[in-house]
Structures are given as C-alpha cells and as structure tokens.
Simulated scan of single mutants.
Amino acid sequence: MNEQKIKKVLVTGMAGFIGYHLAKLLVKSGYHVVGLDNINDYYDPNLKLARLKDLGFNVDEISYNTLLEIENTAFIKLDLTDLENVKTLFKNQQFDVVVNLAAQAGVRYSLKNPHVYVDSNITGFLNILESCRSYPVEHLIFASSSSVYGLSEQVPFHEDNVTDHPLAMYAASKKANEMMAHSYANLFNIPCTGLRFFTVYGPWGRPDMALHLFTKAMVEDKEFEVFNNGDMSRDFTYVGDIVESVKRLIPLAPKENNPLFDPKNPVTSKSSKAYQLFNIGNNSPVALMDFVRAIEKALGKKGKIKFKPMQPGDVQSTYANVQSLYDYIQFKPSTNLEDGVQAFVERYLKLNT
C-alpha cells in the first residue's frame, strides 16, 4: 500500500489521551482525519473538550451525531454502541483506514462497573468490525493492552506468550478484541493490526493514571498512595513514541498467507489471514519509585507518599519485547523518562494553575 494513497483516517476516541495526540500527528503528516468520541464522564469531560479545542474545534458547537468539519479534520460526538449511526458515518465518509482507540479504560473501575466494559469494549468494537465489513477499509488498527498478559511472569512479555489468564474485565475485554478481530480478518478479509499498549504517559494524560495523580497531589501538597509498598515496575511508554509507531503502521497493512505462520504450530501474533499483533512499549521497565522521583525532580519538591498493599487486578511488573514491531516499522520508543515526565508536568501546570 502506498502511503500517499491514504486520504482519510477514522480515529475513534479522538478526545482521549492517545487519540488526541494521534490526530494531531496525522493531520500534521498530511492525512484527513475524522475523529469520533462519546465524551463520557469516566473522567472530567472538560479535559476531553480542551483536547478537542486544541485541535481547532469550537466545542460549543458539539452535539450528538453532528459532524463538525475544519481544515483536514472533522469530529463527531457518537457512541460506538450506536450501530445505525456508526454505519451511516462509515457509508458517508468512506474511510481508508480506521484506528480504534475508543474504549472504557481502567483496571480498578472494571471491578465495580464490569458491564460498561462489555458495552464499550466488546459491543462497541463489534460495531467497528461490522462497519468495516459493510464498508471495507484498507487497514484496521486497534488498541489492545499489556494487561492481557495477566498472571504471566514470562518477562519480557512477547506477543506469542500465553494470554489466557487476565486479571480483570478490562484485560478480558481486550483479549476478546484480539480474537474478534482475527475472526473478522478470517471471515471478511479485514486487514487487522492489534497493538498491546504498555503504560502510556505524557502531556494531556488521563487524570486517573499514576502520573497525573502523583503530580496533582505533589502540586497540592497532599498525600498520595503508592501500591505494593512501591515494589512495582512499569514499561512506561511516551505518547509521542506511541503515535509515531501508529502512524508508521498505517500504510503497512498485514497480508494473507504470512510465510511466518505455521498452522501446525500456530502462534498468537501471526495468522494465515491478514492479521497481526504487536507489543508497543519502551522495552525498558522503570521502578515505580524512580518514576516518583522523576516527578519530584520535575516539580522541584518531595511527595508525601502513603504506601499501600497490592490492589486487586494489578500486576507487579510489565516489560515489553518490541523486536517484532521494530523489525516491521524500523522504529522503537526511545524517549527518556525524565524528558517525558518533564513534558507532562509542564502541560499539567499550564492546564491547572
């Protein structure tokens, strides 16, 4: 596929953290981007509206199922569970590529609100697949998660590790997405690439994530909780590296009959159909307390830490093997943690002080 041929990309979850950054990069790179988001209240909708405003939209004009258009960009407030209107959008816009980032996020939220994950992450994704079936696209890229590795301690995590032991509904829904995409690639020839994101952070990040929570508490001189007594590590991945990877993947749709797939010895990440999975992480896990110290350095003050035991549904460590993705796109995340945290803190202070 020729990158210049691609004209129009649907980015679902465009008012979200990664979706906002991806839309900004794709528009800058010459793509026509249509964004979709339901702007729900899982966290403060004003942050989502601020992201859309930064993309150039007049947020006062947003209303349900109404397409707002500005130069090379459009936005529609729409819920993916609304199949009729989602299909109408596909019919009218004739997308070349779809990047599905819309999902109900959060591990701990899923312990109290499991039905939301079925609605948003399974029914919503099914509606994306059905729309791609009715109005074919050249490539569907969809967000999975490092949480699918669950109980596995085979680190660094490789795409072909067993992922049959998820620890929460969020992880289970992302595992389901991978299997659903494979079935549609098989039945309806939809080229699908799934991306297992590893702890994405950076400017405009979600307020329910550790970086935002820790920074907010330090700025306000309040106590904050660190779980498992701080004995945790994460493969923190800077959002700029994430969206650069997605951009590079857009013209590289998988093809059928992958010679690396052996049906007598099948692996998770490849298929005889046009389907593939990649880890997308920094390949360099960071101790949680080092992460806290990076925030303290960026703010120039010490945090007031309250150590707590491990939370249900959480894991002690994540660590991505990203060799397959690097071999495919000749790029791997490399942003220094201190630089990434500094960029977040600067944006946080602009938005909140």
Rank of each mutant, 00 (worst) to 15 (best):
I76V: 15
I76N: 01
I76K: 04
I76R: 04
K77E: 09
K77P: 00
K77N: 09
L78R: 09
L78G: 03
L78M: 09
D79V: 04
L80K: 08
L80V: 13
L80P: 10
T81V: 11
T81D: 05
D82R: 03
D82F: 01
D82E: 05
L83W: 03
L83N: 10
E84L: 10
E84H: 12
E84S: 14
E84K: 14
E84W: 04
E84I: 13
N85V: 07
N85E: 10
V86K: 01
V86P: 01
V86G: 02
K87Q: 13
K87A: 06
T88Y: 05
T88G: 02
L89I: 08
L89P: 00
F90T: 11
F90P: 01
F90S: 07
F90E: 05
K91W: 00
K91T: 09
N92H: 11
N92M: 11
N92K: 15
N92S: 13
N92F: 04
Q93F: 03
Q93H: 05
Q93R: 08
Q93W: 00
Q94T: 15
Q94W: 00
Q94D: 15
Q94C: 13
Q94M: 09
Q94K: 14
F95P: 01
F95R: 03
F95C: 10
D96R: 01
D96E: 07
D96Y: 01
D96N: 11
V97Y: 00
V98E: 00
V99I: 13
V99G: 02
N100V: 12
N100L: 03
N100Y: 05
L101A: 06
A102Q: 07
A102E: 08
A103N: 07
A103L: 05
A103E: 12
A103D: 10
Q104F: 02
Q104L: 06
Q104K: 09
Q104A: 12
A105C: 10
A105S: 14
A105M: 10
G106V: 09
G106A: 05
G106C: 06
V107I: 15
V107Y: 03
V107G: 06
R108V: 14
Y109W: 12
Y109K: 07
Y109Q: 11
S110Q: 07
S110G: 12
S110C: 09
S110I: 07
S110P: 15
S110A: 11
L111S: 13
K112R: 10
K112F: 08
N113M: 02
N113P: 07
N113Q: 08
N113Y: 02
P114Y: 00
P114K: 00
P114V: 01
H115L: 10
V116M: 06
V116D: 15
Y117N: 09
Y117I: 07
V118I: 15
V118N: 12
V118L: 13
V118W: 08
V118Y: 14
D119F: 00
D119L: 04
S120N: 14
S120V: 07
S120G: 06
S120W: 01
N121C: 04
N121Q: 05
N121H: 04
I122V: 13
I122P: 08
I122K: 03
I122R: 02
T123H: 09
T123F: 05
G124W: 02
G124S: 07
F125C: 08
F125P: 11
F125I: 11
L126V: 10
L126K: 10
N127G: 06
N127E: 04
